[in-house]
Computed example of a mutant assay.
Amino acid sequence: MKTFFTRTASALVFVAVMLGGILWADYTFFLLFFLIGCFALQEYFKLLREIDVDYAGVSPWHKWGATIAGAAILLTFTGDSFSIGGIPTGFIGWWIAVLFLLVMPLGEVLMSKDFSLKNIGYSAIGLLYVTVPFGLLIHIRMNAINIHYTHENVGTAPGWLIPLLLIIFIWINDTMAYIVGSLIGRTPFAPAISPKKTIEGTVGGMILAVATAGVYGHFWGYQYLALQHWIALALIAAVFGTIGDLIESKLKRMAGVKDSGKIMPGHGGFLDRFDSLLLAAPFAWIYVQTFMIA
């Protein structure tokens, strides 16, 4: 019972912080995903240290260089939305990111006892796997004015809509997959990675997520997004969100841990909460750029 109340309380706090950050303003949206991105990257590095002991021996320069590069990459995606001393934060972030991405390998050569290109590769993959997806969400939010929302291209949907929909569709897919799997699930989907997932539950979750998006988009959401966009975003969230969840589960299994972190009592770490979003966000960004940009 105590565990139930702990999980419920932390979930309510999580939802309140997420909604406040996403809905309040541009800068709160950026700060929210900036912090999530930085902490999730640290959890990724922690998993790597458990997976490969060689990575545990990287120099402090490498550790901090990769962290600062990740933060700078996130800043880059703000573009001209904010400025410091009249200089766009996107420009500042771009130069910091380039500087540290160029200098970090040099520092690794000079300061590490055992130089390894493999360790640099691990960090680079982390920036692509963890940092860039959150940056793409920020980019969608900051460039919403260029997005065509309806058939007539006159929609007035706020910039936070698409990122929020991705999160909601992922949650619907996960919840429905669990319910359907519990009721009729018989065939293991990926037993070596996630033994509890079933094909019936996975497919059922995807179908119900897309169906929910289609029904809501047809009857109520048409004023914000054309129906095909509701369905496409739900499909992206369901399919690639599921794959993203499996990727993080594989990393945890390789590391021999249950959770990536302990930031949320009863719910694990940042990677545990946003693993599905890490893969869904890039494909949603590609969809927006291809089919919804003016």
Results as ranks from 00 to 15, higher is better:
6 T>Q: 13
9 A>T: 15
15 V>M: 09
15 V>R: 01
20 G>S: 04
20 G>Y: 06
26 D>V: 05
26 D>H: 12
28 T>A: 12
29 F>T: 11
34 F>D: 00
35 L>W: 10
47 L>Y: 10
48 L>E: 12
49 R>F: 04
62 H>I: 04
84 I>Q: 03
84 I>T: 12
86 G>P: 10
88 P>K: 11
100 F>I: 05
101 L>W: 11
103 V>C: 00
107 G>D: 12
109 V>W: 14
113 K>L: 11
113 K>H: 14
120 I>V: 12
122 Y>R: 10
127 L>Q: 15
132 V>I: 15
134 F>E: 05
134 F>R: 06
139 H>Q: 13
149 Y>R: 11
151 H>D: 13
157 A>V: 05
162 I>K: 02
165 L>Q: 09
168 I>R: 01
168 I>L: 14
170 I>Y: 00
182 S>N: 13
185 G>D: 06
192 A>K: 15
201 G>A: 03
213 A>F: 01
213 A>P: 01
217 G>W: 02
218 H>L: 15
220 W>I: 02
228 Q>S: 07
235 L>N: 00
240 F>Q: 00
242 T>Q: 14
245 D>A: 04
248 E>L: 12
248 E>N: 10
250 K>C: 08
261 G>R: 05
269 G>F: 10
270 F>M: 14
272 D>F: 02
279 L>I: 11
281 A>Y: 06
282 P>H: 09
283 F>P: 07
284 A>D: 04
